[in-house]
Computed example of a mutant assay.
Amino acid sequence: MNQIAINLIAISVFLMTLSTLLGPLIHLSPTIPALTMVGFLGIATLDNFSFQGKGGTIVLDWLARFSPEYKERIIHHEAGHFLVAHLLDIPVTGYTLSAWEAWKIGQPGQGGVILEDSEIAKQLEKGKIGVSMVERYCNIWMAGIAAETLVFKSAEGGGDDKAKLNQFLTALGFEEKVFEQKQRFYLLQAKNLIQENWESYQVLVEAMKTGVDVEECKKVIRESAT
Rank of each mutant, 00 (worst) to 15 (best):
E176Y: 06
L204T: 03
C217G: 05
F51E: 07
V214T: 14
M208I: 03
L15A: 03
V220C: 02
I129G: 01
K164N: 13
Y95C: 06
K162R: 13
K54F: 06
P30R: 05
K104I: 06
Q202T: 08
L25Y: 14
G157Q: 11
W62R: 06
I11E: 11
S154N: 11
A44F: 02
A102L: 06
N197L: 02
G157P: 00
A225C: 02
L187Q: 12
F185P: 00
I194M: 04
F174R: 07
K126T: 03
H77I: 05
G112Q: 13
T36F: 12
I26E: 03
I11Y: 15
S50Q: 13
D117E: 12
L165N: 03
Y95W: 02
M208F: 03
C138L: 15
G157D: 01
S200N: 05
T57S: 09
Y137K: 00
S154W: 03
G42W: 11
I74F: 01
A10Y: 14
W141M: 13
V131M: 05
A147Q: 04
L172Y: 05
E156A: 07
G159A: 15
E72F: 01
F179Q: 03
N7D: 14
V84W: 01
S50M: 14
I4L: 12
G157I: 12
D160R: 10
T31K: 11
V151G: 00
K126N: 02
G42E: 14
R184S: 11
T210N: 00
A64Y: 08
E125V: 07
T93K: 11
L18R: 10
L88I: 02
A190E: 09
E119Q: 09
S50D: 04
F185T: 10
E125F: 10
Q195P: 03
N192Q: 14
C217R: 02
L35S: 10
G56K: 04
L124T: 01
H81N: 00
E206L: 05
S118Y: 10
V151E: 10
Q202S: 02
Q167R: 12
S67F: 08
Q123R: 01
G42V: 11
A190H: 01
H76M: 02
L28C: 08
E215G: 09
Q202F: 00
P30Q: 06
V38P: 05
M142T: 13
H81R: 02
G53T: 05
W100Y: 12
F66Y: 15
L193T: 04
E72K: 11
G39F: 11
M37I: 06
I114V: 15
A44K: 06
I114H: 04
G173Q: 04
A10H: 12
M37R: 06
K162M: 11
Q52T: 10
